[in-house]
């Protein structure tokens, strides 16, 4: 029997690797009977969907380079461009 802590690990690892047949069976049986683990697994699945959306949104909005950093990098690039290669 796997305990809830081990099941919580599987609830995460199923997103990172393919679980073995035995692991899949144990996971399914356990969440069928244990509502705490069922809820935890469902919330991790929700989290994954939310992260997907965040990653997509992040490509176009979010933090920006500060004006100082931008100016500093521009100066540095300028120097490098003028150096004979």
């Amino acid at each position: 029997m796997m305990n809830c802590k081990e099941i919580s690990r599987l609830a995460s690892e199923r997103f990172d690797r393919e679980l073995g047949l035995l692991e899949r069976m144990r996971f399914r049986m356990h969440v069928l009977m244990c509502h705490h683990c069922r809820r935890y697994a469902r919330q991790l699945a929700f989290l994954r969907r939310a992260i997907r959306r965040l990653a997509a949104a992040r490509a176009t909005r979010g933090p920006r380079l500060s004006a100082e950093a931008r100016a500093r990098i521009a100066r540095r690039l300028d120097t490098a461009t003028q150096d004979p290669r």
Binding site: N3, C4, K5, E6, H36, C37, R39, Q43
Partner: peptide
């Protein structure tokens, strides 16, 4: 290894 503080309902 069993829950003592389970995930809350959302």
């Amino acid at each position: 290894g069993s829950w003592q503080q389970p995930a809350g309902r959302w």
